[in-house]
Simulated scan of single mutants.
Amino acid sequence: MTEPATATSTESPRKTGAEPPAAPTPPRAPSTTGWLAFSALAWLLVTLLFYRTAFTGEAGDWSLVMAAILLPQVIQANLLAGAAVGLWSTLALGRRKPWAERGVGRWAVGTAAGLLTGTLASGAVLLAYGMSARAVGVVAVAVGVAGALGGALGAIRPARIMAAGLSAALLVLIFLNVVALFSTPLLNAFGSGDTAAERYSANGLLAGTTAIIAGLIAGLAAYWRIRRAAARSGDTAKWPVYLAAGASAGLLLIVAEFCTRLGVAQLLSLAEADISADSEILSFIAASRLNTGLVVLFVGALTTTIAYGRSLPKAVRD
């Protein structure tokens, strides 16, 4: 006997109405702007702790002069932190609230984030260590203005340019502060001696060399950051993007210098005695900082442009 053939149905099974399980969502990559904001805030904290001796409760004109000398480093760190937090805030909030990434809303969010960052971070340290009542208002206003301007800078688009420029600016500030920390042996290496002419020449050589190296650091760091962002997004950035990113670190130093000059002028106006000699020295230092910012701007922009040109494929001659 033969077994009966079993009929097989070629029809597709009926849908049961149950949806297939959704594919697991891949883990989200960490935000590079978030890490940048964290690094900038960490640098701000290090700067405030390292230069806290300039903002003490000691009375007298000497404390005002010391605060005027070290205020630029605090302003630079505040401006950088405000810009980094402003950039991160506008991007993070813009993903959830479209108005935060458009027009006035973006500028308002960035400025508020920068102002809050500078005010809270600086205020906490100043209150912890105490400061002369005459100068606390001046420093608070200068720090607040720097943070707000930084937040406004963080709202500038394209965000890729700002992220690259701020990353480069962070490295530049670290380098400049390390050079300042070892300024005495470096000045001796550049020929500083007992005469005023030798000290002036050594200061000029050290300042020029430092500015050029800082510009190279800014340009190379910005170039690497733009290339990395372009590779991640799968597009190709044009040379104006590299140019703007390379110049951003120098631009931040220049903006910080103008904020510093407003604060220093107000601090020195509180002096009771004649400090014209100190004012001349501070003016010389301020001119050197401005020159450094200009050199970093031009050298950084030139470095990124040259690096971009070197990365282009060479033309094949027939």
Results as ranks from 00 to 15, higher is better:
residue 1 M to Q: 07
residue 3 E to R: 02
residue 4 P to M: 02
residue 5 A to E: 04
residue 6 T to P: 09
residue 7 A to D: 13
residue 9 S to R: 06
residue 12 S to C: 06
residue 12 S to I: 05
residue 13 P to N: 14
residue 15 K to F: 01
residue 16 T to Q: 04
residue 19 E to T: 14
residue 20 P to Q: 07
residue 20 P to A: 04
residue 24 P to S: 12
residue 28 R to L: 12
residue 36 L to H: 14
residue 48 L to C: 15
residue 51 Y to A: 09
residue 56 T to Q: 07
residue 56 T to N: 01
residue 57 G to F: 04
residue 57 G to E: 12
residue 60 G to R: 03
residue 61 D to H: 10
residue 66 M to N: 04
residue 66 M to E: 15
residue 66 M to T: 07
residue 69 I to F: 09
residue 71 L to A: 09
residue 72 P to V: 11
residue 72 P to C: 12
residue 73 Q to V: 14
residue 78 N to H: 02
residue 81 A to H: 11
residue 82 G to F: 11
residue 89 S to D: 04
residue 93 L to G: 15
residue 93 L to F: 15
residue 95 R to S: 05
residue 99 W to E: 08
residue 99 W to P: 11
residue 100 A to Q: 07
residue 100 A to C: 11
residue 102 R to G: 12
residue 104 V to D: 13
residue 106 R to V: 10
residue 107 W to N: 06
residue 108 A to R: 12
residue 109 V to D: 02
residue 111 T to P: 08
residue 112 A to M: 14
residue 115 L to D: 10
residue 123 G to S: 12
residue 124 A to R: 13
residue 125 V to W: 05
residue 127 L to F: 15
residue 128 A to R: 01
residue 129 Y to E: 15
residue 130 G to H: 08
residue 130 G to C: 05
residue 134 R to L: 05
residue 137 G to A: 00
residue 141 V to F: 15
residue 143 V to P: 05
residue 144 G to L: 09
residue 144 G to I: 12
residue 149 L to N: 08
residue 149 L to P: 05
residue 151 G to E: 06
residue 152 A to S: 04
residue 153 L to Q: 01
residue 155 A to Q: 05
residue 156 I to V: 05
residue 156 I to T: 07
residue 158 P to T: 13
residue 161 I to L: 03
residue 162 M to A: 10
residue 163 A to G: 13
residue 164 A to D: 06
residue 166 L to R: 06
residue 169 A to Q: 10
residue 174 I to D: 00
residue 178 V to P: 11
residue 178 V to K: 01
residue 178 V to E: 01
residue 179 V to R: 00
residue 181 L to Y: 15
residue 183 S to W: 04
residue 185 P to N: 03
residue 199 R to F: 10
residue 200 Y to V: 07
residue 202 A to N: 03
residue 203 N to T: 14
residue 204 G to S: 09
residue 208 G to Q: 04
residue 210 T to Y: 04
residue 214 A to T: 07
residue 215 G to P: 08
residue 217 I to N: 02
residue 219 G to S: 04
residue 220 L to R: 10
residue 223 Y to H: 14
residue 227 R to I: 00
residue 229 A to T: 08
residue 232 R to G: 11
residue 232 R to A: 14
residue 232 R to D: 02
residue 233 S to Y: 07
residue 235 D to R: 11
residue 237 A to H: 13
residue 237 A to G: 13
residue 239 W to H: 03
residue 244 A to K: 06
residue 248 S to W: 04
residue 250 G to N: 07
residue 252 L to P: 02
residue 252 L to H: 08
residue 252 L to N: 09
residue 259 C to K: 00
residue 260 T to A: 01
residue 264 V to K: 09
residue 276 S to H: 07
residue 279 S to E: 11
residue 279 S to H: 13
residue 281 I to Q: 07
residue 285 I to V: 12
residue 286 A to N: 08
residue 286 A to S: 06
residue 301 A to F: 01
residue 301 A to K: 10
residue 302 L to Q: 09
residue 304 T to D: 09
residue 305 T to A: 07
residue 306 I to H: 02
residue 310 R to S: 09
residue 312 L to R: 11
residue 314 K to C: 01
residue 315 A to R: 15
residue 316 V to S: 07
residue 318 D to M: 03
